[in-house]
């Protein structure tokens, strides 16, 4: 393993800002792993801790293939992580909305440029990214439809779900989108949480990456067993939205099987205590996303249900 600094920038009153990277193996740039890019992506950073520990062990055991190189960037934004702020300390810009970056541009464009210049040389890119809505998704691999996406290859992670999403205008400046445009196979791996560390989720993500590495000849060995992934479009998820605001009280857990009409959550009037609304599942399926803050606004998705595959008779 080799440690390096991809980008360094001095600050008048804080320590130097550094983007640190770890390289395993040598030769063909096979896989690049990016952890947290935003300051509240603790789980994303934690997954990288787990992966780094594994890769160090696997390297010592001689499991790396001869001509394959893997790069891990645990955090592209330590300055925000250390103050618990999602975006850049001064101007509140999002590093993950600055790709492919601009070396002569503004601060976060420079960070993105320095990172992108290195990561875009890899054949495959994996990012542990986050959503801005509070809530937990089922672990899955997410890909944007850019015309360059490779969903079949995503099966190598062995995660239960592969989600295809249509890019929106603001997605064009994310790392994932630019990776794809510059011909790196890009995958976003979600392990469930963001601000809260989940051991189980981190282990799952680390397993998924290891399995991908084995199946793609980066690591020697036999792949772990996994059930086939289900591929679906993000827009096919059934959104169950609130019409009222109040306390959010869930009645189901993620991954729980629910039937049409089953109560999923209650919205409670925080002042009077009454149940304002009971949200019900529109179909038979599993709970794929569940909101998880104490208070919820009206017109907000409280649950997203993955409908059972259509039965064929």
């Amino acid at each position: 393993m080799k440690e390096s600094i991809l980008f360094r920038m001095s600050h008048i009153y804080r320590d130097d800002f550094r983007v640190r990277a770890f390289t395993f193996g040598q030769g063909e740039k096979a896989l690049c792993i990016v952890g947290s890019v935003r300051g509240n992506e603790y789980q994303q950073l934690y997954i990288c801790c787990r992966i780094l520990r594994r890769l160090k062990r696997l390297e010592a055991e001689g499991r790396f293939a001869e001509d394959r190189q893997v790069l891990v960037i645990p955090s592209a934004n330590p300055a925000s992580m250390n103050i618990g702020k999602r975006f850049w300390p001064i101007d509140n810009t999002d590093v993950n909305r600055m790709f492919p970056g601009y070396a002569l541009g503004e601060t976060t464009q420079q960070i993105a440029a320095a990172v992108f210049e290195v990561v875009n040389k890899y054949r495959v890119g994996v990012q542990f990214t986050s959503f801005y809505t509070p809530g937990e998704f089922q672990p899955h691999v997410q890909m944007m439809r850019t015309g360059y996406e490779n969903p079949e290859k995503a099966r190598d992670f062995g995660l239960p779900y592969i989600v295809m999403r249509e890019p929106r205008p603001y997605d064009t400046t994310t790392l994932n989108y630019n990776w794809q445009i510059w011909e790196t196979d890009a995958y976003s791996v979600y392990s469930g949480t963001t601000t809260r560390v989940s051991e189980e989720g981190a282990e799952l993500a680390a397993d998924a990456v290891e399995r991908f590495m084995v199946l793609n000849g980066i690591l020697k060995g036999t792949p772990s067993r996994a059930a086939p992934s289900r591929i679906f479009r993000y827009d096919d998820l059934l959104k169950v939205c609130t019409t009222q605001a109040g306390f959010f009280r869930d009645l189901v857990k993620n991954d729980e099987r629910v039937s049409a009409g089953q109560a999923l959550a209650e919205i409670i009037d925080p002042c009077a205590g009454d149940v304002l609304e009971t949200l019900r599942s529109p179909a038979d399926g599993v709970v794929f996303f569940r909101y998880n803050d104490p208070l919820i606004y009206a017109h907000t998705a409280a649950c997203k249900i993955l409908r059972d595959p259509q039965q064929r008779f």
């Binding site: 999602r86 975006f87 509140n92 801005y132 809505t133 603001y170 959104k239 939205c241 606004y297 009206a298 017109h299 907000t300 998705a301 997203k304």
Partner: peptide
Amino acid sequence: ERGIPGFDIDMNRTFPGSDADVMTES
């Protein structure tokens, strides 16, 4: 606050909006 409090997003990145699953969009 520049953005929409509670969402940490720039309102001028939410248009044309939708009647979908986030209050800011509606």
